[in-house]
């Protein structure tokens, strides 16, 4: 096992129950690398997890304090925990795309609105993979999945002029970033900024699901080839190391004013969806621009108490 395992993880939970080739471990590894960079240990972080692949495979892997939220509600639980814990401890939450942007979006938006100090890591496998590979809220249009055999006909939160990070930005989040789980040092850098931000931070990672997205949507069983296709689709890169060289350059964000071409029935999987040209790196950096929820609440409560005592 590597040094990150020995420093941060529980032996009885690793190797995880994730499928061979699941990119979730890559996301988990980047968070641990960021914590290592900040010299934070198991005593400094409370780790919460959502439901689905992302929640299940990371639950209780952290050697320090852990908790599992109900589906989509881990952000609300963490907001209460933030007030109780005080500013000394970091809160890291790992959730999936359905948990964060589907059932839990309203809780997520309200945490962003209050600027609650937490780092949400959204591990996005582009659909509901733990339940058998149905299309989800970030599945690219046109994708063939178990529940969209002729191609997905509805817009998701990525592409077609929509971007869920734009909604979070408008809701008041103070740090937002997006990466592929294959990105190297640049993704760790974004996570470091997110962890250092005394406010609501979210880093969105898109990672390959080999069992459903790879096999059904990409039509490929060979995991190495799935990784290659995934990288070529999102990053435009070929064989090589981490995909950092494309950061902030090759990609383009789908602008709000662009005409949405919509899916072509029977045109095959995902080609042509703007989700595949998303810009990687920091999406919004408003660190320190808004007051943090727990700190202001504690100060406000203290003022009220002192006022009432007079």
């Amino acid at each position: 096992m590597d040094r990150l395992f020995h420093k941060f993880l529980r032996a009885r939970k690793i190797p995880s129950t994730a499928c061979s080739g699941c990119g979730l471990g890559q996301v988990h590894k980047r968070v641990l690398l960021a914590l290592e960079r900040l010299d934070l240990g198991p005593d400094d972080v409370v780790w919460g997890t959502g439901i689905g692949c992302a929640g299940r495979q990371t639950f209780n892997t952290w050697r320090g304090d852990n908790f599992a939220g109900t589906h989509g509600r881990v952000y609300a639980i963490a907001a209460g925990l933030r007030v109780a814990l005080g500013p000394g401890k970091k809160i890291v939450l790992t959730a999936g795309d359905g948990d964060a942007f589907g059932i839990g979006l309203k809780h997520l938006l309200n945490c962003a609105r209050r600027n609650v100090d937490m780092t949400v890591v959204v591990a996005d496998n582009l659909g509901y993979q733990s339940t058998g590979g149905q299309f989800g809220i970030t599945t690219p249009r046109g994708s063939v999945t178990d529940s969209s055999p002729y191609g997905l006909n509805e817009p998701g939160w990525l592409g077609g002029g929509l971007d869920v990070l734009e909604i979070l930005k408008a809701a008041g989040a103070t740090y937002l970033a997006r990466h592929l789980s294959l990105d190297g040092a640049s993704s760790v850098e974004s996570l470091v900024m997110a962890l250092e931000n005394p406010g609501f931070s979210l880093v969105h990672f898109i990672y390959p699901c080999v069992t459903h997205f790879g096999a059904v949507t990409l039509g490929e069983r060979d995991k190495g080839k799935i990784l290659g296709s995934f990288r070529a689709m999102f990053a435009g890169g070929g064989k090589g190391g981490p995909t950092d060289r494309d950061d902030g350059r090759g990609g383009e964000t789908d602008g709000g004013g662009r005409k949405d071409p919509g899916p072509q029935a029977g045109s095959g999987p995902v080609s042509g969806d703007p989700a595949f040209r998303l810009k990687r790196g920091t999406y919004h950096d408003g660190r320190g621009l808004r007051p943090e929820f727990a700190a202001s609440l504690i100060a406000w409560t203290k003022n009220v108490r002192e006022g009432a005592g007079r």
Partner: peptide
């Protein structure tokens, strides 16, 4: 020593 394999390994088993 590019660390490409280290970053790509999802199972914490390569250094």
């Amino acid at each position: 020593g590019c660390q490409g394999c280290f970053y790509a390994c999802p199972d914490f088993c390569l250094e």
